[in-house]
């Protein structure tokens, strides 16, 4: 199956979250059921809650299409504390752990 890696930009804040959404939509279109998409956050130096919710939306969409998502390269700027000022997630939300649709989705 086709595996693709998407590297998120240095500035992943509300200022360019729209462009990022378009990029993620295109990436999903280029894959299919059973594919694996890696979201690589290692270049991201600034991120906010709008980016966090975009990741949640991306995971929901991918899961519904049978695509496996992995989020890697999380750093200080992309921790749940930095993006959302929170310690944990509601368990059955896309960023939470119990119903986390990703295999290695981590805390994002």
């Amino acid at each position: 199956m086709l595996d693709i890696t998407i590297k998120t930009p240095e500035d992943a804040t509300v200022a360019n979250v729209k462009d990022l959404r378009d990029e993620l939509v295109s990436a999903l279109k280029g894959t299919g059921r059973g594919a694996r998409v890696v979201l690589d956050l290692s270049d991201t130096r600034q991120a906010d809650s709008s980016f966090a919710q975009l990741i949640a939306a991306f995971k929901l969409e991918a899961t519904s299409e049978g695509i496996e998502v992995s989020v890697v390269g999380m750093g200080d700027a992309t921790s749940s504390m930095a993006m959302l000022a929170c310690d944990k997630f509601q368990e059955d939300c896309a960023l939470g752990s119990r119903k986390n649709p990703t295999k290695a989705g981590g805390e994002a």
Partner: peptide, 10 residues
């Protein structure tokens, strides 16, 4: 605790 259950798909 943050809740993202209202976030729609992409």
């Amino acid at each position: 605790r943050c809740d993202c259950r209202d976030v729609p798909p992409l």
